[in-house]
Design a protein around this nucleic acid. Structure first.
Lengths: 353, 353
DNA sequence: CTTCATATACTCAAGTGGAGTATATGATAG
DNA sequence: CTATCATATACTCCACTTGAGTATATGAAG
């Protein structure tokens, strides 16, 4: 806010806002925030996309899963990422390979859980991809299908039941409901958001909008975390609240949603899918892994053509035999593509059925 | 690190790493980090891409520009983004429109400036887009061409002189130089990185790799900030150090590099370019704005076709007359595209010349 | 009124991508 | 041992996109 006093001081003392900010920055007592590092570690096991979770044993009443996490300590950790790696190894025994930062969340009130008197925490979410073979040294934590937390994202067997049965009617009701606190009542915007996020009214389902959908469900009070954080829940409006996916600790489900959206987007333009594959694989196995991440089935022949013509893979010379049919050639990732400028991803479109 | 003691404690006390992390999280004395909110506010003035900077008056010896910034206070700010908006308004008088989070930087030592005894700071960078008309209420700070800080990114008049004359020979030298500290000497990787980032040896220049290029120059000790942070500078190797673009305070140039890369990528798949345009504009003005951001010239006829066929704009019915030729039809942004699912960007390819 | 500069329309050929059909080859059952 | 099956792999086709060129419209300036 630009107050008169501020402007006056600025022009008379010659101290700009930026300098004031700097002065505030060197005052150590201003430091009252804590940074949490959180890892969504993703793999694919038996064509199922999974994430590494750690069960919260202390809170046995409502034992919920959470992501591996820990506070960032600028003393112990040289970088944010090295801090994350240290925490994950500490908690699970797993040494991470591919890691990328997702987003930093800082909303007040989104980190609470019952009887949690922690100070304000800013969460930095990370995405890690790993191959199951590299995860043999896992000591703690367990792999859970990510659709357990987001059942409405699982379109592998067509449109999920939970969407038509539970989610869509409640969201439609929420969109129509009068907006209370905020002055400009705008039910139109709510309706539009619902339509775009969930592809209603003939709209297409965008598999990348995982976070948008979760945030909408949170705002509408339809997920457990919203109730936990003390938001007006769906039940307070006379709508029976269903259980929409398993809840997670803190804002971990939001971080996982961001992770899923990011992977789904990224495999299309960067060859990150191979972080999830063993060294040698058949093209069909590769396709199955892509489908596990993206959802719908892909056109097999075109998938092969795209992957091969993009130079993403090269044959090993071996074949894999127990496939129940003609033996499949084994391929490996052509690491050289990383050196050939815009290293592509598996640009795939689902089959229209 | 998984120490024996840790494993033992885990299995015997039943306290997992995650719980330990939680306990650490509720200890307030662990909070010794500060979060800096930084804004790269971008506009286009007279076909020149500009960024809002604030000159550091106190340090008159080496007065450097910096981005608007301020510490995040969980007491005063409800969210990270609202904290950023407050700081920017406080320091510049500008109310921001479009804002998106870029990245969170936390490397130790990248935040220092001479005689700076501040505690460890984690920087969250934000990108803001604004139209010059909305920026009339600007009270502090000034617009600077972003190419002032990144002259090697300015390909509007062909390949910049500074690349062949200054940067490329020094980077080649750096790539060949023996790596000292790290055990595995791998000059190959350095060479590859240089080749990919700067499109050497027949490689294509990727206009989105702005951050990668800056990081490489920093690592090679070729930018002022590297010297300031006490890294081995190019001059210590007997190479005369040129001035590669204007330096910025703290890690602000890194944040700006991230911002430029993000805008360049994003206008291709989201209609964010219109955040930089006035309400009414001609298609040629739109093209000029896109070219200001992206660099090379676009094919005019195809640009028009793409923009119109994607339904991004609609004619206002008016024409603009002082164009020095046939009057140009005025268009406005079709806001409805935001409601039509995958809202597209201006997918453009430069003309091959 | 001529010349110019710019805006706008139209055309075309090469490339890309979705989708179908045909063939190869090992596994398995009888 | 052979018929049948299931899967892998190869080839073909056609619609649509897109890069790039040419032609025309129209106001401004000399």
């Amino acid at each position: 806010m630009v107050t008169d006093a501020n402007i006056k001081r600025r022009f008379h003392d010659g101290e700009t806002g930026a300098e004031k900010a700097l002065h505030a920055a060197v005052r150590p007592e201003a430091a009252n925030v804590e940074i949490g590092l959180n890892a969504a570690i993703v793999a694919v096991i038996d064509d199922e996309p999974v994430v590494l979770v750690i069960r919260n044993e202390t809170d046995s009443a409502s034992a919920t899963d959470g992501l591996p996490f820990g506070p960032f300590s600028p003393v112990a950790h040289r970088t944010l990422e090295s801090g994350l790696r240290a925490w994950v190894e500490e908690q699970t025994g797993l040494g991470l390979g591919y890691v990328e930062q997702l987003y930093t969340f800082g909303d007040r009130g989104r980190h609470a859980e019952p009887a949690d008197h922690s100070p304000h925490v800013v969460s930095i979410g990370y995405l890690a991809l790993t191959e199951t073979g590299h995860a043999r040294d896992l000591q703690h934590g367990s792999w859970r299908s990510w659709y357990q937390f987001f059942p409405w994202e699982d379109w592998r067997k067509g449109k999920p039941e939970i969407l038509s049965a539970e989610i869509e009617p409640r969201l439609k009701e929420w969109a129509q409901r009068p907006v209370l606190r905020s002055a400009p009542a705008r039910p139109v915007q709510r309706e539009d958001r619902v339509r775009i996020c969930f592809g209603l009214d003939g709209g297409a389902w965008d598999e990348e909008k995982v976070l948008d959908r979760f945030e909408l469900l949170y705002e509408a009070g339809l997920v457990e975390e919203a109730r936990r954080d003390g938001r007006e829940s769906a039940s307070s409006w006379g709508v029976t609240a269903p259980r929409l996916g398993a809840a997670m600790r803190f804002d971990h489900r939001r971080i996982l949603a961001t992770a899923i959206g990011r992977v789904r987007a990224k495999i299309k333009y960067r060859p990150v899918i191979f972080e999830l594959m063993p060294d040698d694989f058949t093209l069909f196995e590769l396709q199955k892994t892509v489908e596990a991440i993206l959802g719908p089935h892909l056109h097999k022949q075109n998938f092969r053509r795209l992957v091969e013509s993009a130079g993403l893979v090269e044959p090993t010379g071996e074949v894999k035999t127990q496939t129940g049919g003609r033996p499949a050639k084994l391929f490996r990732f052509r690491r050289e593509v990383l050196l050939e400028r815009p290293a592509p991803g598996v640009r795939v479109k689902p089959v229209r059925s």
